[in-house]
């Protein structure tokens, strides 16, 4: 059984998988992990090649778009220690095409699909739960602390939706930001974040939303458990309607 190592980056992972699928006759017997530089680490280190990673991903996307999408969602989760499963999953995807996602009796497929599903679910949730605040200069800012690294696809979603606004997304824990202004989308990091002043009418609009939120619920049908299972408390911090709870 052959073991390989890569540098721990996303590009490194994809180029390693591309390389292994190229040279190994039976990739499902291969082990792949991130290099930790410990004393007893065994295996051949594969060099990171961003161009190879990219061409490999687009090849997969052409051959099995759905499997490529699963791979993409899986990468958002930044999970460590599942590289071998991912390698096996991708190898199966090249064998079976998009049907692979139905192969849930296979442990590697199940693991990858489950993680991808969780990341995809959070992305979908955040499309609804993200809250923008209007700043003094007329731009809008949304802060968030998602479990997964979803800022890219999320910003892409809002670039279609809130096209006429100038806005920022800020991932507080990862210190990454996205900015949309006049039709262009940019990503970057923010080292020192200072909360900017809000526009004058912001609190008034927030109060209207809070009022709506309260009245739309049917009073004798309070169901906090159902509310929390649909909208876990970890997301409440930035929800206007949940302030002060």
């Amino acid at each position: 059984m052959n073991s390989y190592l890569y540098d721990g980056t996303a590009d490194g992972l994809l180029s390693a998988i591309a390389w292994i699928l190229e040279v190994e006759p039976d990739p499902e017997k291969v082990i792949l992990s991130a290099r930790k530089d410990t004393l007893f680490e065994e295996g051949l280190t594969i060099n990171t090649d961003a161009a190879l990673a990219e061409s490999f991903f687009s090849r997969l996307k052409q051959y099995a778009p759905d499997a490529a999408h699963t791979l993409y969602s899986f990468m958002l989760a930044e999970k460590e220690g599942m590289e071998t499963s991912l390698l096996h999953y991708v190898s199966l995807a090249f064998r079976h095409g998009d049907k692979v996602k139905g192969y849930l009796t296979h442990p590697a497929v199940r693991d990858i699909v489950n993680v991808a599903k969780k990341a995809g679910r959070e992305l979908h949730r955040m499309k609804g739960l993200l809250r923008f605040e209007k700043l003094q200069d007329g731009a809008y800012l949304a802060k968030m602390e998602p479990d997964y690294n979803i800022i890219h696809p999320l910003a892409y979603h809002f670039s279609h939706r809130l096209r006429a606004q100038h806005w920022f997304l800020y991932d507080v824990k990862r210190r990454t930001a996205a900015r949309w202004n006049k039709g262009s989308l940019q990503f970057g990091t923010i080292e020192q974040f200072t909360t900017p002043a809000l526009s004058e009418d912001e609190k008034k609009v927030q109060a209207l939303w809070q009022a709506f939120f309260k009245t739309i619920a049917i009073p004798d049908r309070k169901n906090p458990r159902l509310q929390k299972s649909n909208m876990p408390m970890k997301y409440w911090k930035y929800l206007v309607e949940k302030q002060g709870e």
Partner: peptide, 19 residues
């Protein structure tokens, strides 16, 4: 030049106190 699109899968933006 405007604001907004709709998404075919539908998006929930919050869950009221009745769930």
């Amino acid at each position: 030049c405007g604001t907004g699109n709709t998404s075919s899968s539908g998006i929930c933006h919050s869950w009221a106190d009745d769930g």
